[in-house]
């Protein structure tokens, strides 16, 4: 069959259009199925569900600080207060706005707004509650992301592809826990010692705690857990014999903003 150039271009153009529309249509009818079919099958193993318990009875100011430092060091989280070069010193009014934090502390009434009352145990009111991404079972950040740059893994970790993120910051509006940070400027001049085990970031992308997915892959505990001296417990919620399950069985725990239905997987012993 003969085909002139005009005809060829017409068919090629049409099939390109259909190709694009075709994938979109699939995504509409069976969301995620196309990607899933293209990705490798998960390894045959018991389903893991990672979770963390923060034991506030064991966590003091110094330990919390150690956890944060450990986390921020191995993830190259910038400290805008400490530029490597004095010429990059930032005016004080932007420090709070630019701040990138994966792990940080808040007082009870900020960590659990509305749950405090004037006569509560004073000690608890002043504890440094360690906050991080809750790796929700039903994460709004994943729901709103227009490119699946934020996604939920089989093991419950809400992770990010910082190479796909377009920087629209819809996830920051969606997260009810303030767990997401945006790179408002180049973070690299503010990373004291670049840790080779994790990429540094460019301007314009969102980031957050990953439950140390890169360390879990090497059978290591999350950096904060390792530095916590037992105040943080981490493990597989689906494994009855795991430390995390055992801790949840023995202590009463609370979680942040459960009424919003995101089902956070960071538990607090007060």
């Amino acid at each position: 069959m003969g085909m002139d150039r005009r005809e060829f271009i017409r068919i090629a153009g049409l099939s390109t259009l259909l190709g694009l529309g075709g994938k979109g249509a699939f995504e509409l009818l069976r969301p995620g199925q196309v990607e899933a079919a293209m990705a490798a099958k998960p390894e045959a193993q018991g389903v893991v569900r990672w979770a963390m318990v923060v034991n506030m009875q064991k966590l003091d100011e110094a330990t919390a600080k150690k956890c944060i430092e450990a986390c921020h060091r191995v993830h190259n989280v910038p400290d805008f207060k400490k530029p490597k070069d004095a010429k990059d010193t930032l005016p004080p009014e932007v420090l709070n706005r630019y701040e990138v934090k994966w792990l940080w502390t808040e007082h009870f009434h900020n960590a659990f707004p509305g749950e405090d009352h004037p006569n509560m145990l004073e000690k608890v009111a002043h504890l440094p509650f360690l906050l991080l991404c809750n790796h929700c079972d039903n994460p709004p950040c994943v729901r709103v992301c227009p490119t699946k740059a934020t996604f939920r893994r089989e093991d419950g970790i809400v992770n990010m592809d910082m190479h796909r993120c377009i920087g629209c910051r819809f996830c920051m509006a969606g997260c009810p826990f303030g767990a997401r940070s945006f790179n408002w400027r180049d973070p690299r001049p503010y990373v004291a010692d670049t840790f080779p085990g994790y990429p540094t970031r460019e301007i314009g992308v969102v980031e957050k705690c990953t439950f140390c997915a890169e360390r879990l892959a090497q059978n290591m505990l999350p950096a904060c857990v390792e530095a916590s001296g037992g105040a943080l417990v981490f493990g597989d919620l689906n494994d009855e014999k795991s430390r995390v399950r055992d801790t949840l069985k023995r202590y009463f725990t609370i979680r942040r903003k459960v009424h919003l239905g995101t089902n956070p997987q960071v538990y607090y012993i007060v």
Partner: peptide, 11 residues
Amino acid sequence: VGLGITGMGRD
């Protein structure tokens, strides 16, 4: 420079 030249921030 990045969106940091605006008044927006993490909050």
